[in-house]
């Protein structure tokens, strides 16, 4: 196996025609020892996974640690991937499971996660009123409000909503990641959207 360079490049790779490779081709190359393919996969997925995990743990540093754990697992267990499922399904499943484990640990340590809090306990650090002068501030306000509304969803609703409406995965992929039937996924997404709409109708 090629030795991994001490500092993985964050810049786009010098891999020829990298854009031509699908995720599945990249993981196949990585399984054969091409570590550049690993770097490309990391660059493709680190922000997506970060967004996905952040909505679980609501903490940047912790989310980043979990994403690193997931990508480290990809490195150490690359041969566990079989080309029968999409790579994205596999990596999201790993990351999701790690996030759930972290949530369980948190619960165990009596550090109540936001999803377990009562409505009165929740503090989203939202500004008291929506700033109307600054467009950037307005946009940030809306963003925080949406994040808070997503955070308010029960975990099983939240997961499917993030995967569908933020990560834009297909229903079939989501069904495999969360390991529930397709119909249940559709129903959960629909109900989650209705609930989100109720919380965010003031934004309009």
């Amino acid at each position: 196996m090629n030795q991994l360079s001490p500092n993985l490049s964050m810049q786009p790779l010098a891999m020829d025609n990298q854009f031509r490779y699908t995720d599945e081709e990249l993981i196949a190359r990585f399984q054969e020892g091409d570590e550049q393919a690993y770097v490309e996969l990391v660059n493709r997925y680190r922000d997506k996974l970060m967004t996905f995990i952040y909505h679980f743990v609501k903490d940047n540093e912790q989310a980043e640690d979990i994403v690193q754990d997931a990508l480290l697992k990809l490195y150490t267990h690359k041969h566990y991937y079989r080309n029968i499922a999409k790579f994205s399904t596999w990596i999201y499943t790993i990351a999701g499971n790690l996030a759930k484990t972290e949530l369980r640990k948190k619960k165990h340590h009596k550090v109540t996660s936001i999803s377990q809090m009562g409505l009165e306990d929740r503090d989203y650090e939202l500004p008291a009123v929506a700033p109307e002068t600054d467009e950037v501030a307005q946009s940030e306000y809306i963003e925080k409000k949406i994040q808070a509304a997503i955070q308010n969803l029960p975990l099983h609703f939240r997961t499917v909503t993030i995967l569908r409406d933020i990560q834009e995965l297909s229903y079939e992929e989501i069904s495999k990641i969360v390991d529930v039937p397709l119909g249940t996924v559709k129903s959960r997404i629909n109900r989650a959207r209705i609930q989100l709409q109720k919380e965010l109708k003031d934004l309009k």
């Binding site: 500092n7 993985l8 490049s9 964050m10 990391v42 680190r46 922000d47 997506k48 970060m50 967004t51 952040y54 940047n60 989310a63 980043e64 994403v67 690193q68 963003e143 949406i146 994040q147 997503i150 909503t161 409406d165 933020i166 834009e168 989100l196």
Partner: peptide
């Protein structure tokens, strides 16, 4: 929701 930007990893990530 779709228009929300991705949450970025930090510079120390890699």
């Amino acid at each position: 929701i779709k228009n929300m930007p991705d949450i970025k990893t930090s510079d120390k990530f890699m």
